[in-house]
């Protein structure tokens, strides 16, 4: 120890350290870089390559050339394939214009292209994968799904999945006509203002139950009481009551009052 500290200030000490550092860097590169190339699956690497091209032309303006993010868009490293599939398949990405939130719109990319983009972003870091069909098939426990929905989802998405307002123009979108796969992916990845529900906080089966309930309640369940009025709660009911019901009654009152022999006025 004493020897080392004595030679610490030797004129050649810096050079020795430099040689060690270079050797370590070079050795590490030699150890990992070629190996990675050798291990890569051919079709997957083609998808990643194609995805990268798509990414560079369509996404990098906001998310950065290396998906590291910029002031205009978040980093995509580690968001996973599920996030890309959700955002691009529902047309939310690419963004049409900056705003409070990316709205759902017709998708721009083909399913094959979306798969390539997902593969590229997945290659950047570990993240949630695209769920398989049996994970989101709407055949789970509807009662449990309903209870979980009321506990975790209805505060933003409304009791019947009709959506709701968040701050500053943001919103929880309506869940009607949303592909079960996308509902599942949204829970996995937590897009935009939504919290994510990874498997560690909400097991797969629970997510499946929620997907089942949402699917049933927005698609299959008719409104047992008749016209649903958007299932928005008392606001639309009150509006309907004032305009249609009271309007009709007042129209009837005017009609009845008009059908009267007038009192003589001479």
């Amino acid at each position: 120890m004493k020897k080392l500290s004595a030679r610490r200030r030797h004129p050649l000490a810096a050079i020795v350290v430099l040689i060690f550092a270079l050797a370590a860097t070079g050795g590490l590169y030699a150890a990992f870089a070629p190996a990675k190339k050798a291990e890569a699956d051919d079709s997957a690497s083609i998808a990643v390559e194609a995805g990268k091209k798509l990414y560079l032309s369509g996404c990098s303006t906001c998310h950065g050339l290396d998906a590291q993010g910029s002031t205009d868009g978040p980093s995509l490293i580690g968001v996973g394939a599920a996030a890309v599939d959700f955002q691009v398949s529902t047309g939310r990405m690419p963004l049409q214009q900056p705003g409070a939130q990316a709205p759902r719109k017709p998708e721009v990319y083909t399913p094959a292209q979306i798969q390539q983009l997902s593969a590229y972003v997945a290659s950047l870091g570990v993240g949630p994968k695209i769920p398989t069909a049996n994970m989101y098939a709407p055949d789970g426990d509807i009662v449990n799904g309903a209870e979980l929905f009321r506990t975790n989802c209805s505060q933003c998405h409304n009791f019947s999945g009709e959506g709701g307002a968040l701050t500053e123009g943001k919103y929880a979108p309506p869940l009607k006509d949303v592909d079960p796969k996308h509902i599942y992916e949204a829970m996995l990845s937590g897009p935009q203002n939504m919290p994510s529900f990874p498997d560690s906080t909400m097991p797969e089966q629970q997510k499946k139950d929620i997907v089942t309930y949402v699917h049933e309640t927005t698609k299959k369940e008719p409104n047992p009481g008749g016209l649903g009025l958007g299932r928005l709660g008392p606001v639309s009911e009150g509006l309907f009551g004032w305009i249609i019901a009271l309007g009709l009654l007042i129209a009837c009152a005017i009609w009845i009052a008009a059908r009267t022999p007038k009192a003589r006025t001479k």
Binding site: R150, T151, S154, Q155, N158, F159, G233, V235
Partner: peptide, 13 residues
């Protein structure tokens, strides 16, 4: 359930 809430919670008009 006091732990739950729904968006669009409004009273009658």
């Amino acid at each position: 359930n006091p732990g739950q809430i729904t968006a669009g919670s409004q009273p009658d008009w």
